[in-house]
Design a protein around this nucleic acid. Structure first.
Length: 566
RNA sequence: CGGAGCGUAGCGCAGCCCGGUAGCGCACUUGCUUGGGGUGCAAGGGGUCGCGGGUUCAAAUCCCGCCGCUCCGACCA
């Protein structure tokens, strides 16, 4: 491609609303342009990268026997009603006004629909079906450039199996394929245990990239033996104490004590005898949750435990229902509440909690004796420095970007849509499904997040839009132009994809800056300075290393260099 | 959905407090100049100041409403 003819609108100034490096560079390099919040046009240079990433994804999916589909983005809303996901997605689901159609945010329903109509026998499975297609989600707050958009390209695949063991096989095949895909795209990623959330199912893992720009929080052990999304992460922390003697409850006056820290200081006791009360609505029913000391309640865990939508109670309603304000709430004598507690408190006595009367607390509470606890569950959010579950290494908490997510769905959708098959005995069984996703744009943005410097993007060869950026330093020098034109032709013949800066009215400095910004792995610089000595300069973008080669031997040298470059 | 901010030329911004002929840099056009790290000089083109209403002799500027966008948070398959 000749830069003089191509449409690659680079810009010098960083757009003010782009905060993260990948977003800034994708705009500056002329890869994308925003059309509206979370909606991007992909310009030729960006689209070229996208196609390369898609090709890698296709190769690895095909390698595990997956078959490519192309499914409609417009779906009848009835199918989504049947699985209950119109309600589950809520406002995130785009709905059409003039037809009972939705813009598909994912495709479990449609896959299931096809399977229901065409898979009759156990003999027809396993199947792995995939597609690379636009997804539409009305995100309340799109952000970070293409990292969270309202429409985005996704590789989604679905496995259809007859047994849970077979599902494990399909799942593991995906995990392996995903590792290959992200590795080939030059990403440093890690795998974490994750919450299945509203997708349902029995297990899931996320492929994560550590980044300050990430929206997920992950607990990682120092020895890398443990990695989990903070939503489900667990750690080893000591449980509460059970004293031999359970003393009678006593009321303590605690004027102006609002927080657990203040209470510990006021009573001169350790946090592990304090039971913090947190009140949530669970599908509009109030629940009191007891946490030890200052342990932070994990809403994801709470949601899983209760199987309901959860949200904190409003301060006004709190007093109405308990008779006290936050800071003085407790489980003893509380009516009309479901009460659950964190596992750390199981069996504990001698505890202090609120008296449901402002400025008073109760001491010597024995949870077994004094209240009805509906269950003890792991409900706490792990903290940095704690020991990872099942290990001795301590945890650190990092931010991450989710590149891919694999789910063991089970029969949630096949049950809802009655996608069944006949087994060996002629019995009708629901198909066991898995679902697997990769965000294509996220791969691209993440690659830039991990591979850039002050001057611009540094592409890995595997997804670089072009292999070589050829610069004719001056178009006024006949010798330079002749040499550059010849190299452009010969490199193309040699199968090297070249972006050729043949712009005539552009100064050398401008061309060098653009080349660094666009970030092709190798730059071939043809200038008078070296040509008089029959030399051409090669520059490796990543290292900045410059090598002079014989002008007659450029093609061979370029091929050699490209082999050696990541 | 809660909090904060922004909307003035393609991009980045000033002007608004204190109402009175709409500006700067980059980009663009033309000419000259320069030619190894975003050349220099000169002359140009380009705006219903987001939209609607109000106050006023007069509104980019003050007031009200709406829309859009961004950031922080909540949410997120």
């Amino acid at each position: 491609m000749r830069l003089s003819k191509g449409f690659i609108p680079t810009v010098k100034e960083t757009p003010s609303d782009a905060i993260i490096p990948s977003h800034q560079l994708m705009i500056r390099a002329g890869m994308v342009r925003a059309l509206s919040a979370g909606i991007y046009s992909w310009l030729p240079l960006g689209y070229k990268v996208m196609k390369k990433v898609c090709e890698i994804v296709r190769e690895e999916m095909d390698a595990i026997g997956a078959q490519e589909f192309h499914l409609p983005a417009l779906n009848p809303i009835e199918i989504w009603e049947e699985t209950g996901r119109v309600k589950a997605f809520g406002d995130t689901l785009f709905q059409l006004k003039n037809r009972p159609l939705v813009l598909a945010p994912t495709h479990e329903e449609i896959i299931c629909w096809i399977a229901k109509n065409h898979i009759e026998s156990y003999k027809e499975m396993p199947q792995i079906w995939y597609q690379i297609q636009m997804k539409f989600r009305n995100e309340p707050r799109p952000r970070s450039g293409v990292l969270r958009g309202r429409q985005f390209l996704m590789k989604d695949s679905y496995s259809l199996d007859t047994t849970w063991e077979a599902l494990d096989v399909s799942y593991d095949l995906h995990a392996e394929a995903y590792k290959k895909i992200f590795t080939r795209c030059g990403l440093k990623f890690f795998i974490v245990g994750a919450s299945s959330g509203a997708m349902g199912g029995t297990g899931s893992q996320e492929f994560m990239l550590e980044s300050e720009s990430g929206e997920d929080t992950i607990a990682l052990s120092e020895d890398n033996s443990y990695a989990a999304n903070l939503e489900i992460a667990t750690s080893t922390v000591p449980k509460g104490i059970r004293n031999a003697e359970s003393k009678p409850i006593e009321e303590v006056h605690t004027p102006n004590v609002k927080t657990i820290d203040e209470l510990a200081v006021f009573l001169k006791v350790d946090h592990n005898v304090l039971a913090k009360s947190v009140i949530y609505w669970a599908d509009d029913k109030p629940v009191l949750i007891l946490m030890m000391g200052n342990d932070e309640l994990n809403e994801s865990k709470l949601m899983s435990v209760l199987g309901a939508d959860v949200r904190p109670i409003e301060a006004e309603r709190l007093k109405e229902l308990t008779g006290a304000d936050g800071g003085s709430i407790g489980p003893v004598g509380l009516k009309g509440f479901k009460i659950i507690a964190d596992k750390r408190l199981e069996g504990a006595n001698g505890l202090v909690s609120g008296a449901n009367r402002n400025d008073f607390h109760l001491g010597n509470i024995d949870l077994q004796r004094d209240c009805t606890i509906d269950g003890y569950f792991d409900l706490r959010t792990v903290q940095a420095g704690e020991k990872a579950s099942g290990g001795s290494a301590s945890l650190r908490i990092v931010k991450g970007i989710e590149l891919g997510h694999i789910f063991k769905l089970g029969t949630k959708y096949s049950d809802a849509l009655k996608a069944t098959y006949l087994d060996e005995k002629g019995e009708s069984k629901p198909i066991i499904m898995g679902s697997y996703g990769i965000g294509i744009e996220r791969i691209i943005a993440c690659h830039i997040e991990q591979n850039h410097d002050a001057n611009g993007i540094i592409w890995d060869k595997s997804i670089a839009p072009y292999d070589v950026h050829l610069i004719a330093v001056s178009m006024k020098s006949t010798g330079v132009v002749e040499k550059a034109e010849q190299l452009y032709r010969d490199l193309d013949k040699a199968g090297v994809d070249v972006l050729y800066d043949d712009r005539s009215a552009t100064s050398p400095g401008f061309k060098f800056k653009d080349a660094d910004l666009l970030g092709m792995p190798l730059q071939v610089i043809v200038g008078e300075k070296n040509l008089v000595n029959a030399k051409v300069e090669l520059k490796i973008r990543r290292t900045g290393e410059r090598i002079l080669v014989e002008a007659d031997d450029v093609i061979n040298q370029v091929k050699l260099m490209l082999e050696g470059i990541k």
